[in-house]
Design a protein around this nucleic acid. Structure first.
Ligand SMILES: [Mn+2]
Ligand SMILES: [Mn+2]
Ligand SMILES: [Zn+2]
Ligand SMILES: [Zn+2]
Lengths: 147, 147
DNA sequence: ATAATTGTTGCAACTCGGTTGCATTTTTGA
DNA sequence: TCAAAAATGCAACCGAGTTGCAACAATTAT
């Protein structure tokens, strides 16, 4: 089970709050989303959130997902939640998790020589989520996205 | 051959400059890099560069590559330069192109049902480039990167 | 040729994600 | 209990990217 303790991170209320939000999430979260899902009275400064996420990443308990739209997203990284591709909807911007693929084969596929040492592979897919595709068929979609 | 003309884009000195820079490049370029590789006297406003890149993308002659470090990168998208993974060095931040993979198989692999319609697949790999790995062995590397 | 229209650029101001420095608070531990 | 170390918050800042508008250039119509 993933706790601050067995990740070797000293326990503070802010770190606990951020960890619990990430544990509950079913998709990667941005910093602003993380902060919004914290009670008003327990508000955490954005700098603190960045520092906590940076620490979590150093300890290997979360990973960062890059997105074309500026912000980065974060999700729990455990054995039960291995690295996997993500789907980014062109219309509403929603970022969802896809089923894990055998990334373990990717290094051999990609590395012909000794040119790179790989420590992270990220696959991001974009298009239309089912929801947006359906609404697009009927009306012109509710929530647009540029990109 | 890729020109503004046969891409259906009216010719201006600014668009020509940006296109030529992208055509010469051997790796994806950021907006700031593009602007820096323009002669001082022919300087192009950053807004104009963004508008040009957006237009090029709409015409399908360039593609955008997301990176974890904030900025987006751009490269020519032609039949001779099909979609491919990129390598991002954890140490120096260099972004290089890797050999194309059979992405065409990916949609079937990823989409079990009818949940998404895919129009772009991006694979980003990060680690250490050969250069940085070697220098890291001897000295502590010259140019560091956080991330 | 001239005027009206349209397309393109540049400037200023702004938003947003993320970082840095420093003072203040909290925790640790001798 | 008291000092050192760690963690938080605040303010100020930076860089990427966007928006509105005025100036300018290229077309098109009169
Ligand atoms: Mn995920
Ligand atoms: Mn490339
Ligand atoms: Zn959607
Ligand atoms: Zn490197």
């Amino acid at each position: 089970m993933l706790t601050l303790q067995n990740a070797g991170i000293s326990k503070t209320s802010q770190r606990l709050a951020v960890l619990n939000i990430l544990l509950k999430a079913t998709k990667p979260l941005s910093v602003s989303t993380i902060r919004q899902s914290i009670e008003k009275e327990a508000d955490i400064d954005k700098v603190t959130v960045y520092r906590i996420l940076s620490l979590f990443r150093k300890r290997g308990i979360i990973r960062k997902i890059a997105s074309a739209g500026g912000a980065n997203y974060f999700e729990i990284a455990t054995l039960e939640n291995p690295l996997h591709p993500h789907f980014s909807c062109r219309n509403c911007g929603a970022l969802t998790c896809l089923a894990p693929l055998p990334f373990t084969k990717a290094p051999e596929l990609i590395l012909s020589k000794d040119d790179y040492s790989i420590d992270h592979i990220e696959i991001n897919i974009s298009g239309l989520c089912a929801c947006c595709r359906n609404t697009a068929k009927t009306k012109t979609s509710l929530h647009q996205r540029e990109e």
